[in-house]
Design a protein around this nucleic acid. Sequence first.
DNA 1: CCAGACGTTGTT
DNA 2: GTCTGG
DNA 3: CCAGACGTTGTT
DNA 4: GTCTGG
Length: 226
Amino acid sequence: MCGRYAQYSSADAIADLFGAAIEIEGLGPRYNAAPMQWLPVIRQRPNGERVLHALRWGLLPSWARDETIAARLINARAETVAEKPAFRAAYRARRCVVPADGFYEWAKRPDGKQPYFIHSTDETILAFAGLWERWTSPADGEVIDSFTIVTTEANPAIQPLHDRMPVILAPDVVDVWLDRTSDPARLSALLMPSPEERLAMHPVSRAVGNVRNEGRELIARVTDAE
DNA sequence: CCAGACGTTGTT
DNA sequence: GTCTGG
DNA sequence: CCAGACGTTGTT
DNA sequence: GTCTGG
């Protein structure tokens, strides 16, 4: 699954890679990006223009009565995303890319949970497959754009840690994912586990468990169970 | 017809 | 919003 | 994902 | 144990 990630590449680097205009302010490096936070996402307008915006992690379906459901919709299963009421509309028309430099998974140990940082072997920015939605509060009219990260089964390298992982789009399929006219059959073919050779992992400090902690030291290798 | 759900994870 | 259950 | 809260009353 | 907040 994907419940915590890092995003420390600059807005310029992300914009260059995805051909997006920057419409986000105060974007700093994040080593502990958590649900319910405002994080950078790439969306594509119908005219093909791409924009880097801040959206809140945790999908709020348009019909939600209040915001409490968002914390539970931080991931969408690739196997069912086309059918589930909470996700299907966004899957059809509001796909997005979540730029990331890596993500965390927690391995269960007798003495607690050991977090691992999983990142690309070639230091390139990862493109998580995302969905976004616009919600208007029935109570006060507040408008919130939010997103969720699509997950698939873990590849063999990650399987020992966890049986799910985020869908990581290969650079050459980002166009298909962001094009809202793409054929459904073509889309579902993209929702596959990332090749093992694209990712590497190492154990990191348990400090990443607390969302209040932030900083480069959170992705540093530690000896296991440190 | 209206009422109520709509999701993921992991664990048992 | 849209589907399922009653 | 993990961390932290989890309740009511009345009174100040 | 289960839900909410980040």
